Amino acid sequence: MIIIRPIRSSDYDALHTIAIESGHGFTSLPINEELLQNRISHSEASFAKSVTEPGNEGYLFVMEDTKTGQVVGTSGIEAAVGLDDAFYHYHLGKVVHSSRKLNIYNTVETLSLCNDYTGSTEICTLFLSEKYRKNKNGRFLSRMRFLFIAEHLERFSDTVIAEMRGVSDENGRSPFWDWLEEHFFSMDFPTADYLTGIGKKVFIAELMPKYPIYVNLLSKDAQKVINQVHKNTKPALRLLEAEGFSKRGYVDIFDAGPTVEAQTRDIRSVHENLRCQVIIGEVSSKDRYIICNTQVENFRAVQSPISLRETAKQAVIPADVAEALMVNEGDWIRVIAN
């Protein structure tokens, strides 16, 4: 069975492998033993913590194939970004240059450095091993986070964002960064991306242009990739758009990939899921649902057919699913069709 659970210290080797497989542009998982160990420890502390409002908690989940014991994917939630380290974006804006006397009117796009998303909840660190990209596992790994948020709203902000990976090639070359590197940074994209991933962000404030950048002054290649996603990220973007996320003109400062946002309670999986009491029994239905328990430290989620009794707010689930979810008859679960 495929389950999703909180990460634990024994998952370090699997997380390190995922960090390697994820490649360039996956800032939240740098290939650094100390940082990965800290990420796991911070997640364990966050799941164990009693919370009444979002703070610097970070929740990291893993997908496990219980048949083999192998960890095959991960996804995460940062409760409130930018509280400890500055959280930078570029905001796409416009300025108008006009002259009535000469009858000239020109609109120019600009990029302005900002910290507008400070305090927002971020869904992040989504990666699934290629062998397991089937049976809607990717959707499961992404959407189950919204069930966790729905059950524990006090832990999260009113706004949820997701940074989409921008355009770069197989060697980590970003056309947008190439322009910044040439004029301001004098370091390649993988190096800048890695420094950010390990928390060394001071160089951004020191070297980043202090004034808005006129987009039409960038190279043509750089202009083309602004607000565009990496080809491997397109399915993740479509999934989030189906959940109600949209672009608001904010892009990553390194690769110019878009950041999408949604109001937490408006996210489809947050407001459309059902909270039901468990009945353990035989299930004849073939319709598969994402199902999770209502716990924090012992959170579990699976995909399985269930029989819904919506009027009674009950769900019939198989015994093996109940065992995987660590629930008994009469306990509460959240479900949504996948």
Rank of each mutant, 00 (worst) to 15 (best):
N232G: 13
T27E: 02
T233Y: 02
S307E: 15
V278Q: 01
A324E: 13
W177N: 09
S120G: 08
V95H: 13
D116Q: 06
D65W: 00
K131Q: 13
M326I: 02
S186Y: 10
D320Y: 08
I279M: 01
I290W: 04
T159M: 12
R288D: 11
L239C: 12
L147R: 02
G197W: 05
A14P: 04
S46N: 06
N56C: 12
G25W: 09
H230I: 03
A301F: 03
R248Q: 13
V270L: 02
S304R: 04
Y59E: 09
D252A: 09
R139N: 15
S41H: 02
V215K: 00
Y250W: 13
G76H: 00
T125Q: 05
I18Q: 06
N232T: 14
F146G: 01
A315N: 04
V270N: 07
D169H: 05
R139W: 10
L60H: 11
K286S: 14
T17F: 06
K210E: 09
K231A: 07
T233L: 01
N328F: 05
N328K: 11
P190S: 10
M144H: 15
T233A: 07
E243D: 12
G172A: 03
R5S: 06
N273P: 01
N137P: 03
E109S: 05
T191D: 04
V215L: 02
M187Q: 08
R133K: 11
Y194T: 03
M187K: 10
K49V: 12
Q277E: 13
N293K: 07
K201Y: 06
G93D: 13
C114I: 07
G249M: 11
S112P: 13
V72F: 12
S50K: 15
A14C: 03
I40M: 08
E329I: 11
F203H: 11
F156S: 02
E154D: 09
E64Q: 12
M63Q: 07
V302Q: 11
D178A: 09
Q228K: 14
F61N: 01
A45I: 03
Y117W: 12
V327E: 00
W177G: 01
S307L: 04
P54W: 04
T121N: 08
S46V: 06
I7R: 04
V321I: 15
L207V: 05
D178G: 11
F140C: 10
R39C: 02
V251Y: 09
P305Q: 12
A262Q: 08
N135F: 15
K210S: 00
I291V: 12
N135S: 15
L207F: 05
T259Y: 05
S174G: 08
F185Y: 14
S9A: 13
V251E: 11
F156T: 00
A192G: 12
V225C: 08
G257R: 03
E181M: 10
I40Y: 01
S75E: 09
T27I: 04
T125G: 13
H230D: 10
T264I: 04
R265D: 12
L102Y: 05
R248K: 12
F245M: 11
K234Q: 00
N227S: 15
G93Q: 10
L35E: 15
Q228C: 06
E282L: 14
F299W: 09
V302C: 12
A324G: 12
